[in-house]
Simulated assay, not measured.
Amino acid sequence: MIPELSGIDHVHIYVSDRSAAHHWYQQVLGFRVMEQYLLWAADGGPLMLEDPAGRVHLALFESDKGPPSTIAFGASGVEFLRWKAHLEECGEGVSVSDHDLSWSLYFSDPDGNRHEITTYDYDAVKEHLR
Protein backbone atom coordinates (compact mmCIF):
# COMPACT_ATOMS: atom_id res chain seq x y z
CA MET A 1 0.00 0.00 0.00
CA ILE A 2 1.04 3.56 -0.64
CA PRO A 3 1.60 5.59 2.56
CA GLU A 4 -0.77 8.50 3.20
CA LEU A 5 0.20 12.14 2.97
CA SER A 6 -1.03 14.63 5.53
CA GLY A 7 -1.25 17.50 3.03
CA ILE A 8 1.11 19.96 1.41
CA ASP A 9 3.79 21.02 3.89
CA HIS A 10 5.03 24.05 1.95
CA VAL A 11 5.58 25.36 -1.58
CA HIS A 12 8.87 26.79 -2.89
CA ILE A 13 8.51 30.23 -4.47
CA TYR A 14 11.44 31.75 -6.38
CA VAL A 15 11.65 35.54 -6.18
CA SER A 16 14.17 38.13 -7.33
CA ASP A 17 13.89 40.29 -4.17
CA ARG A 18 12.84 38.37 -1.06
CA SER A 19 12.15 41.50 0.99
CA ALA A 20 9.85 42.95 -1.67
CA ALA A 21 8.18 39.56 -2.13
CA HIS A 22 7.63 39.24 1.62
CA HIS A 23 5.96 42.65 1.62
CA TRP A 24 3.67 41.65 -1.28
CA TYR A 25 2.68 38.33 0.31
CA GLN A 26 1.99 40.14 3.58
CA GLN A 27 -0.03 43.01 2.09
CA VAL A 28 -1.98 41.12 -0.57
CA LEU A 29 -2.43 37.63 0.92
CA GLY A 30 -1.90 38.25 4.64
CA PHE A 31 1.08 35.89 5.03
CA ARG A 32 3.45 36.37 7.97
CA VAL A 33 6.97 35.20 8.74
CA MET A 34 7.21 31.93 10.65
CA GLU A 35 9.56 33.20 13.37
CA GLN A 36 10.59 29.70 14.51
CA TYR A 37 12.22 29.10 11.08
CA LEU A 38 13.78 32.52 10.60
CA LEU A 39 17.30 31.08 11.01
CA TRP A 40 16.79 29.15 7.75
CA ALA A 41 16.61 32.46 5.84
CA ALA A 42 20.35 33.04 6.31
CA ASP A 43 22.82 32.12 3.59
CA GLY A 44 20.27 31.66 0.79
CA GLY A 45 17.86 29.47 2.69
CA PRO A 46 14.11 29.99 2.57
CA LEU A 47 12.12 32.69 4.32
CA MET A 48 9.17 30.68 5.62
CA LEU A 49 5.75 32.35 5.53
CA GLU A 50 2.32 31.19 6.64
CA ASP A 51 -1.24 32.35 6.12
CA PRO A 52 -3.14 33.87 9.07
CA ALA A 53 -4.67 30.48 9.99
CA GLY A 54 -1.26 28.77 9.90
CA ARG A 55 -2.44 26.15 7.38
CA VAL A 56 -0.58 27.29 4.24
CA HIS A 57 3.22 27.55 4.25
CA LEU A 58 5.43 29.14 1.60
CA ALA A 59 9.23 29.07 1.31
CA LEU A 60 10.56 32.20 -0.41
CA PHE A 61 13.92 31.61 -2.09
CA GLU A 62 15.78 34.58 -3.55
CA SER A 63 16.88 33.57 -7.03
CA ASP A 64 16.44 34.92 -10.51
CA LYS A 65 17.13 31.46 -11.94
CA GLY A 66 14.14 29.60 -10.50
CA PRO A 67 11.13 28.76 -12.63
CA PRO A 68 7.90 30.65 -12.04
CA SER A 69 5.70 28.79 -9.60
CA THR A 70 1.94 28.28 -9.59
CA ILE A 71 0.01 27.82 -6.38
CA ALA A 72 -3.69 27.01 -6.30
CA PHE A 73 -5.43 27.88 -3.04
CA GLY A 74 -8.90 26.60 -2.17
CA ALA A 75 -11.78 28.68 -0.85
CA SER A 76 -15.49 28.44 -0.17
CA GLY A 77 -17.81 30.28 -2.55
CA VAL A 78 -18.31 33.13 -0.09
CA GLU A 79 -14.58 33.49 0.52
CA PHE A 80 -13.89 33.26 -3.23
CA LEU A 81 -16.07 36.33 -3.81
CA ARG A 82 -14.39 38.11 -0.90
CA TRP A 83 -10.96 37.29 -2.39
CA LYS A 84 -12.05 38.65 -5.77
CA ALA A 85 -13.09 41.95 -4.18
CA HIS A 86 -9.95 42.11 -2.03
CA LEU A 87 -7.56 41.46 -4.93
CA GLU A 88 -9.30 44.07 -7.04
CA GLU A 89 -9.05 46.57 -4.16
CA CYS A 90 -5.30 45.80 -3.99
CA GLY A 91 -5.02 46.69 -7.68
CA GLU A 92 -4.08 43.17 -8.70
CA GLY A 93 -4.84 42.13 -12.28
CA VAL A 94 -7.34 39.36 -11.65
CA SER A 95 -8.92 37.13 -14.26
CA VAL A 96 -11.91 34.92 -13.50
CA SER A 97 -12.33 31.57 -15.20
CA ASP A 98 -15.47 29.46 -15.32
CA HIS A 99 -14.39 25.81 -15.42
CA ASP A 100 -18.00 24.51 -15.48
CA LEU A 101 -17.45 22.61 -12.20
CA SER A 102 -15.40 25.25 -10.41
CA TRP A 103 -14.39 28.90 -10.58
CA SER A 104 -10.84 30.21 -10.43
CA LEU A 105 -9.23 33.59 -9.87
CA TYR A 106 -5.82 34.03 -11.49
CA PHE A 107 -3.24 36.66 -10.59
CA SER A 108 0.54 36.98 -10.31
CA ASP A 109 3.04 38.22 -7.77
CA PRO A 110 5.63 40.84 -8.81
CA ASP A 111 8.05 38.06 -9.90
CA GLY A 112 5.54 36.46 -12.27
CA ASN A 113 4.68 33.52 -10.03
CA ARG A 114 1.08 32.61 -10.81
CA HIS A 115 -1.57 32.21 -8.14
CA GLU A 116 -5.00 30.67 -8.38
CA ILE A 117 -7.88 30.66 -5.91
CA THR A 118 -10.40 27.95 -6.71
CA THR A 119 -13.87 27.21 -5.39
CA TYR A 120 -16.08 24.24 -6.09
CA ASP A 121 -19.17 26.10 -4.80
CA TYR A 122 -19.99 26.60 -8.45
CA ASP A 123 -23.68 27.56 -8.33
CA ALA A 124 -23.30 29.93 -5.40
CA VAL A 125 -20.57 31.90 -7.20
CA LYS A 126 -22.36 31.75 -10.57
CA GLU A 127 -25.31 33.67 -9.09
CA HIS A 128 -22.98 36.56 -8.20
CA LEU A 129 -20.82 36.66 -11.31
CA ARG A 130 -23.41 36.38 -14.05
Results as ranks from 00 to 15, higher is better:
7 G>M: 14
123 D>K: 06
36 Q>M: 13
29 L>P: 00
110 P>V: 11
89 E>C: 07
8 I>R: 06
98 D>Q: 06
109 D>I: 01
81 L>R: 05
89 E>S: 13
112 G>M: 07
107 F>Q: 00
50 E>D: 10
128 H>M: 10
127 E>L: 14
23 H>Q: 13
113 N>G: 02
6 S>A: 13
77 G>S: 04
67 P>S: 14
88 E>S: 12
57 H>P: 01
6 S>R: 13
16 S>K: 13
78 V>N: 09
41 A>C: 04
101 L>T: 15
22 H>R: 14
36 Q>A: 14
60 L>Q: 04
30 G>P: 01
4 E>F: 08
4 E>Q: 13
37 Y>D: 08
102 S>H: 07
126 K>W: 14
66 G>C: 04
60 L>E: 05
60 L>T: 02
71 I>S: 04
41 A>K: 12
77 G>H: 03
88 E>Q: 15
24 W>L: 04
117 I>G: 02
48 M>R: 08
23 H>N: 09
74 G>A: 13
105 L>P: 05
115 H>D: 01
44 G>I: 10
54 G>A: 05
83 W>I: 09
123 D>P: 01
27 Q>N: 11
89 E>Y: 06
15 V>Q: 01
49 L>I: 06
22 H>C: 09
84 K>F: 02
100 D>N: 13
15 V>F: 01
71 I>V: 15
28 V>A: 03
106 Y>G: 05
34 M>S: 09
89 E>M: 11
28 V>C: 05
14 Y>F: 14
115 H>E: 02
34 M>K: 14
118 T>G: 03
119 T>M: 04
38 L>A: 14
18 R>E: 02
118 T>P: 00
103 W>G: 01
70 T>F: 07
68 P>I: 10
88 E>P: 07
110 P>N: 10
61 F>I: 12
30 G>M: 03
104 S>D: 11
117 I>V: 15
30 G>T: 03
68 P>T: 14
102 S>T: 15
13 I>T: 02
18 R>Y: 03
23 H>F: 08
9 D>P: 03
4 E>T: 11
43 D>C: 10
24 W>D: 01
22 H>W: 10
77 G>E: 06
69 S>M: 11
23 H>I: 08
97 S>V: 12
90 C>G: 04
16 S>H: 10
112 G>K: 08
5 L>M: 10
21 A>M: 06
71 I>P: 00
14 Y>I: 05
122 Y>H: 15
4 E>M: 10
47 L>P: 00
12 H>N: 12
